[in-house]
Amino acid sequence: MKSSKILVLLIIGFVMLYFIAACVQRTNRINTAGSTTVLPIVQAAAEIYMQKNPKINISVRGGGTGIGIKSMINETIDIGNASRKINKRESDLIEKDLIETAIAKDAISIVVHKDNPIVKLTLEQLKKIYSGDIINWRSVGGNDKKIIVISRDISSGSFEVFNEVVLDSTMVKNNAMKLSSNNAVATAVSYTPGAIGYIGLGYVRNELKVLKIDGVLPTRETAMNNEYKLTRFLYMYTTDTPKKLAQDFIDFILSEKGQKIVEEQGYVRIK
């Protein structure tokens, strides 16, 4: 009987400790979620930021731009990361305005397998490949090989930007593969000889070949001066009264040091 009393006391003690810890934590915590394109920047920035401010804990989750904005609407996070602007459907759901801060720029790179002889495509050809009008590499000057079209899943911001700029409200063909992350697309294209896919500039690796689109190769310079057409801003969203900590973290990313991180992660700085 005595031992069970001690057990109960112990349990109560632990529960109280947990609540105290939770309260302390809440004040020193920044929760972010959203676009997997923005994720590497936030992750790297969060690591350095937490090293400088060891008391602050930043939680970084992916999930896709849609999840970031949805969590912002439900106010379950402090910063929503997005690789596109908030759309009408989403902004209609909240009375308060969200504050939008552009933190970096990204160029969506069109990649193919490294053995593919193709070096350039026009936006029009790209549109025809993704809508199913062109199905063989021969039609765009390549080898006689079937094109394996790889797209991103519809919860990704890259998908929406790609649709807007390239497809211009034509449908992606039914048999296009839809993969759930930049990395999945990069990996699949790297070992599939006939594949074409699109990924963020930060995910380009040596095993992939980046194509010129309308004669322009995606680089930091061409993205910055808008010469390359498939560019977009990356954003962080907060409520109109952001937590002081959250604002401080965004300011850090916009600082010289933060923008350097942006560059290190393979994206384009905006300042």
Binding site: T65, I67, N174, K178, S180
Partner: peptide
């Protein structure tokens, strides 16, 4: 790929995959 496959070597999009990857958006 949301298509009815013509062979087993074509990509497919099972129901669970559609629910899980689209619920976020």
């Amino acid at each position: 790929a949301a298509q009815i496959p013509k062979s087993i070597f074509q990509p497919v999009r099972p129901m669970t995959a559609a629910i899980a990857s689209e619920m976020g958006e």
